[in-house]
Write a protein that binds this DNA or RNA. Sequence first.
RNA 1: GGCCCCAUCGUCUAGGCUGGCCUAGGACACCAGGUUUUCAUCCUGAUAACAGGGGUUCGAAUCCCCUUGGGGUCACCA
Length: 489
Amino acid sequence: MPSARPVRVRFAPSPTGFLHVGGARTALFNWAFARSHGGAFLLRVEDTDHARNTAASLQSILDSMRWLGLDWDEGPEVGGDFGPYLQSERVAGHLQAAEELLAAGRLYRCFCSTERLTALREDQEANKRAYGYDGHCRSIAPAEAAARAAAGEAGALRFAMPRNEEIVVQDLVRGEVRFGGGEVEDWVAVRSNGEPTYNLVCALDDAAMRISHVLRGEEHLVNTPKQILVHRALGQEPPAWGHVPLILGQDGKKLSKRTGDTAIEDYRAKGYPPEAMFNFLCLLGFAIDDRTEIFGPAELVEHFDVGRLNKSGAIFDPEKLLWLCGEYLRATPVPELADRALPFFREAGQVAGEPTGEERAWLESAVAALRERVRIYSEFPAKAAFLFGMAAEPDAQAAKALADPDAAVQLEALAAALDAAPAFPPADFDAWIKAFAGERGVGMGKVMKPARAALAGALGGPPVGDILALLGRERALRRLRAALAGRRA
RNA sequence: GGCCCCAUCGUCUAGGCUGGCCUAGGACACCAGGUUUUCAUCCUGAUAACAGGGGUUCGAAUCCCCUUGGGGUCACCA
């Protein structure tokens, strides 16, 4: 391991979409690695695919990272000494390097037509042979190739891979991985239109940015021998590599949109606490010990160890994520929780603007009463719906409770008692309601069920005392009596 | 198909590198109880795994090999 070098790691997204959970986890592990070694975490934007890049995508990716609590030492929005950090702004250097590699004989010109390449591939497929370029143009003398290029013949630049030398990757998470000589094809390093390709550029920039460790998804493992060769051709020591397993969907395959939300942005929009998301992502492929489930950035940094990363893919379990969300949500102080839930109340049209005074106090009470029944912020409005506007339409169970012949009797008595009580709701509601039921010689259920049904339209929910307080005297009594009237009508 | 990676409860995992403390631990989900006016929270308990086969060894979840299974990748995308 090139441990002599200062630790510098990078996350290199391409701005062609949103930040996916897999990418987010990779970023997170890189971040943790840098922080645990006192190194630098940088962001490099691989925006060389002009057709698919968008500025909105880049912004979205940066926002998602910030939302997760990841910060970077170099990169877009923060600068740094090894910029530019937008790969598209580095092409001049890439092209110059390509020229040098061509002159050094590490790259060679390939004039093969698309047709020939396609035919080659089809033939290989038909004969069940290994796919890959056959090295057709590798034997063209450099002088001749140069002449043809000078004459205007279009051609790509391919990397001349060693034919007999085995390439060994010392992988931080999987150990030694060997690629036989000649197994990796002579890949295109510069397209015939003059644009350098990913494997060239990636290695070039990793070298230029003094990246010491490359932690990335397992899908890149097969690219590694190519990039190692570029580093060697440059006369530089390659970074240390570490390939983390994939995050899988319920179907056991690489997580994709069809199995659920894959964009971090979606989870944010749905009101998942970012801390829970962070924690959950850590749990996919990493564990501090045999029992710690809930932990945050500080503990991660303290215990992070690439060698402890799992080698096998992990299925993304939305249920466990939700459980974690609930844990975090319940651990959040009520005022802060109210702040976080506020946008969702607004979106539902239940709250407008920035509540203050009594309104704010009321909101906090509602949040406090509902928090144990909610796991993500966006669940608040639905659970709180009965507190706003008209009483909710009773659900089946509530309707049944109201249909009980005795319900009206109890409701009428309850409304009257509540109305006559010195305070609303009565202090120590639990004791009060017990006494009420006791005096009337009925079980609690006889009173509570219809009360819930009339008040909330459902038999579940927060304690009735809380509901009464939240509704306020007037609305609560009105609802109790309306239910009564409804029965008579 | 070639190459590469992987393989502990349904799922996430601990243990494996440094064989014996593993009659394999924790968590989610599920099921059963308890607490609670209800729902939820919370508490208790139960069910549940070392893919198979060979080795090595006094002893293997742990080391080796094979098989099987799963995944990744094979672009002039990144």
